[in-house]
């Protein structure tokens, strides 16, 4: 049975005595893109890391649960199987002394997949991520690939897992505008074709405008506003949202932003 809804309920994260994430809840459905936006340090990445039990050293989850289709689920059962992840800096997410093929095998092995279908599965995933010549690519080391290719490779590994949900943490921040658009088009296509539910962490309202259905605005560890993407751009209620949208729109000529 394929899963339909993921709920993060009341996630809280502390670093020592300081509360960094304070009771964040959100719902992600299949086929939907939810954007988690906010300035650096607002707690958006920590919220996702906490849900997957992948917090950095020095921070601890102090509360909260994750629910899958209405029943609680342990983070270790979520990671990789139900939720695949794509991270900001693809270069630091790969082991520099291992080929892409090694990474693919490691991923499929961790998921307990039959060895006989590895090759077919990974080739298909690479093609779906827009990487042709999978056989040649699997022999390459990370330094032999560009940032855009590595980001596609990371998305391919996420696809190979066939997880119904994807957490994408600033997936385009380090790429140039042309690669950026290609990756966003790719994510939009995967949502259409496979009904992937995507939680998109970003600070770029242009990325939000391109891809998101719903937006949660975070500031100081809390969700300050949650609304459909149109409402966020047209009637932002909270001061933080208004500032984010105003800064974003100030980069565009007036004729583009009047409806």
């Amino acid at each position: 049975m394929s899963h339909q809804t993921l709920n993060l309920v009341d996630i809280a994260v502390d670093a020592g005595a300081i509360r960094l994430v304070d009771g964040v809840s959100l719902t992600l459905a299949r086929g939907e893109v939810v954007a988690l936006v906010g300035a650096s340090g607002s707690g958006k990445s920590l919220t996702c890391a906490a849900a997957l039990d992948a917090l950095p050293a020095g921070t601890r989850r102090q509360g909260g649960q994750v629910w899958l289709d209405g029943a609680p689920i342990a983070p270790e059962r979520l990671r990789g199987r139900v939720v695949a992840s794509v991270l900001q800096n693809p270069r630091s997410a790969f082991n520099p002394v291992r080929t892409l093929g090694d990474h693919a095998e490691e991923t499929l092995q961790a998921l307990g997949m039959e060895k006989s279908c590895w090759k077919e599965r990974i080739h298909r995933a690479l093609r779906e991520a827009g990487l042709d010549e999978p056989q040649r690519l699997l022999g390459l080391y990370p330094f032999e690939m560009s940032g855009g290719m590595l980001q596609r490779a990371m998305i391919a590994l996420a696809l190979a897992s066939e997880a119904p949900f994807l957490f994408a943490d600033e997936p385009t921040t380090d790429l140039d505008v042309i690669h950026q658009r290609e990756i966003l088009d790719l994510l939009a296509g995967l949502r259409e074709r496979f009904g992937l539910g995507i939680l998109l962490i970003t600070h770029d309202m242009g990325v939000v405008a391109r891809l998101a259905d719903r937006v949660l605005v975070m500031d100081q560890g809390c969700v300050q506003e949650s609304a459909p993407v149109e409402a966020i751009f047209r009637q932002p209620r909270h001061a933080v949202t208004r500032a984010l949208v105003a800064a974003h729109l100030s980069l565009y000529p007036a004729q583009e932003i009047t409806p």
């Binding site: 809804t5 709920n7 309920v9 009341d10 304070d22 009771g23 964040v24 809840s25 959100l26 719902t27 459905a29 939907e32 209405g70 505008v177 042309i178 950026q180 658009r181 966003l184 770029d204 242009g206 990325v207 939000v208 405008a209 391109r210 998101a212 259905d213 719903r214 949660l216 809390c222 969700v223 300050q224 506003e225 949650s226 459909p228 993407v229 149109e230 409402a231 751009f233 974003h248 729109l249 980069l251 565009y252 583009e256 932003i257 409806p259």
Partner: peptide, 28 residues
């Protein structure tokens, strides 16, 4: 022109596709 075309949109193009949620988000 290629670099100009790749610029991200100012505003969302699609109409909102708000859905029914199982649990409302808590706003603090």
């Amino acid at each position: 022109r290629a670099l100009a075309e790749a610029v991200l949109p100012a505003l969302p193009r699609r109409l909102s596709t708000a859905r029914e949620h199982l649990a409302p988000e808590r706003v603090c």
